[in-house]
Amino acid sequence: MSLANVLKTLFFMLCCLMIVTLGYTISIAGLPFRKDLLTPWMVATLVDYYINVVPLAAWVSYRESSWISGIIWIILLVCLGSITTCAYIFIQFFKLSPEESLQEPMYHVLLWNAINNSMEHKRKNSPVVAAKILFGSLGLVMLGTLVYTILTYGSPFRTELFTPWMSATLIDFYINVVALSVWVAYKESSWFSAFLWVILLICFGSIGTCVYIVQQLWCLHSEDPVYLILLNTRNRAENWYDRTLC
């Protein structure tokens, strides 16, 4: 089975898992729109969750050729979480031609019209510095939220905190982490470094995500198009980008 088919199957199954989780949680715990559910650790988890949504939303915004469709997908990401993430990724893999599915499927899924527009985009400045500031700031926000919540409300590893909606939120969160981990695995040149970064994402959530993105952005020059962060070094060099980056 090709990598494209493996990933299509993976994200289809994860989408189904989250739909079942959502339906089951609503059936036993009611709707989530209640003030009593917003405990301090639930709030911290939601901050963590939505910071991880930011890079996914940025990718969707770049990937969509129409700003209207981009806004619709981002709203769905915010409202439906990893269900939208998995559905969107599944659709992008489904759109691949047989040749693209067999040859660098991640490259074709990550980039929008890359071959036709790469030379044009290379000449344009892009907000690499702004992206560093954005994700660096988001990482600090999450670090501050985590430290404050621990100091004020104690450890998160307590049985009473794992309410049905907290459990559902964590499943939702880690399905998005799977999507980000697939990208990290594609980006990294060795399985060992990919494994270490994925462990960081799992253990530190959006802090790990922001650290990884900032680290990758430091490999770009300020005049580079920011979407180059999506590609691994080999794809940049072999397909159209002529400067070797880290």
Rank of each mutant, 00 (worst) to 15 (best):
Ser2Ile: 10
Leu3Met: 13
Leu7Phe: 10
Leu7Thr: 04
Lys8Pro: 09
Lys8Ser: 13
Phe11Trp: 04
Met13Ile: 11
Leu17Tyr: 07
Ile19Val: 10
Val20Gly: 05
Ile28Cys: 09
Ile28Gly: 14
Gly30Asn: 00
Leu31Cys: 01
Leu31His: 13
Leu31Lys: 08
Pro32Val: 03
Phe33Glu: 15
Arg34Glu: 07
Asp36Gly: 05
Leu38Gly: 14
Pro40Trp: 11
Trp41Cys: 07
Trp41Ala: 11
Met42Thr: 09
Val43Ser: 14
Val43Tyr: 04
Ala44Gln: 07
Leu46Thr: 03
Val47Ile: 14
Asp48Asn: 13
Tyr49Cys: 10
Tyr50Arg: 09
Ile51Cys: 05
Asn52Met: 10
Val53Phe: 09
Val54Ala: 04
Pro55Gly: 05
Pro55Tyr: 04
Val60Glu: 00
Val60Ser: 02
Ser61Ile: 12
Tyr62Gln: 15
Ile68Lys: 12
Ser69Ala: 13
Gly70Val: 01
Ile71Trp: 01
Ile72Gln: 09
Trp73Gln: 15
Trp73Ile: 00
Ile74Arg: 12
Leu76Arg: 07
Leu77Val: 01
Ser82Arg: 10
Thr85Ile: 03
Tyr88Phe: 10
Ile91Cys: 01
Leu96Thr: 03
Leu96Glu: 05
Ser97Pro: 12
Glu99Pro: 12
Leu102Met: 07
Glu104Phe: 09
Glu104Val: 15
Glu104Trp: 14
Pro105Leu: 10
Tyr107Asn: 14
Leu111Cys: 11
Leu111Gly: 11
Trp112Pro: 00
Ile115Trp: 04
Glu120Val: 05
His121Ile: 11
Lys124Arg: 08
Val129Gln: 06
Ala130Gly: 12
Leu134Ala: 04
Leu134Asn: 01
Phe135Glu: 03
Ser137Arg: 01
Ser137Met: 13
Val141Lys: 05
Met142Trp: 04
Leu143Ile: 11
Gly144Leu: 08
Leu146Val: 14
Tyr148Met: 14
Ile150Tyr: 11
Thr152Glu: 06
Thr163Trp: 01
Thr163Gln: 09
Met166Phe: 15
Ser167Trp: 07
Tyr174Phe: 02
Val177His: 02
Ala179Tyr: 01
Ala179Ile: 12
Ala179Thr: 09
Val182Lys: 13
Val184Lys: 02
Phe192Pro: 08
Trp197Gln: 08
Ile202Val: 07
Phe204Gln: 00
Gly208Val: 04
Cys210Thr: 03
Cys210Lys: 00
Val211Tyr: 02
Val211Thr: 04
Tyr212Trp: 10
Leu220Lys: 01
Glu223Arg: 13
Glu223His: 04
Val226Tyr: 00
Ile229Thr: 11
Leu230Pro: 00
Leu230Ile: 04
Asn232Trp: 04
Arg234Ile: 15
Glu238Val: 02
Glu238Gly: 09
Asn239Ser: 12
Arg243His: 10
Thr244Phe: 06
Cys246Met: 06
